[in-house]
Design a binder for these strands. Sequence first.
DNA 1: ATGCCATAGGAACTATGA
Length: 258
Amino acid sequence: MRIATFNVNGINARLPRLLEWLEETRPDVACLQELKADDDKFPRGAIEEAGYGAIWHGQKGFNGVALLARGAAPVERQRGLPGDPDDSHSRYIEGEFENGLIVASLYLPNGNPRPGPKFEYKLAWMERLRAHAEALLALERPVVLAGDYNVIPSDCDTFSVRAMAEDALMQPESRAQFRRLLYQGWTDAIRARHPEPEPVYTFWDYQAGAWARDAGFRIDHLLLSPMAADRLRDAGVDRAARGRDKASDHAPVWIELG
DNA sequence: ATGCCATAGGAACTATGA
């Protein structure tokens, strides 16, 4: 089965591209981020017509995450990341799919500018994610944590270490928290299939001709629990999606599980 | 150091992003 994650950067602005991508690649589960739409603005009709059941956690203006299942209705397990009742951002949704599979769609805070409250929020969010991920591992089930992590894990995951040196995405604290997650026992699916130092970018800025000169970085990740990692057959990036008219600044990332 | 470009909301411009 195919599971994919796609930061759409506005689900209504991106709807034609999203529907086209669903039809072309037919993922069994799709994790979407940056809906930038309130719950009642989610295009449920168009998604259903494309053959997908959906659950979503919207927010006006920014954030917003969703889970899509082909020919099925995802069963919601968790809406919002646990650990802070005062956190109003819609950045996490978790569902249950066929054969006991658990999949989460997450949109980790960017953290810029740094230093400052946004960077502190990012690190606190990562700590909450670590705690929740630990609980998921304890279930000993196939689990996929997919989404826009806003973390460049290592220097070969960016076109320019120098250009990104001061960015929150590449700070030692952000990377350390990401590594702590991996050390719990999660597998970074892209790196399992495409070991370093192969560059595998998932994001290219709209500005400064970044796509044209392949000035990208890797921030969209699928982390697999041991039971999911055992089933990993392949992983990749749908780069073609980034080259299209009215494209998102992110490309979809996918895995195939046996 | 800032803008570059894009989206949403709302009707000029700001907030947000990475």
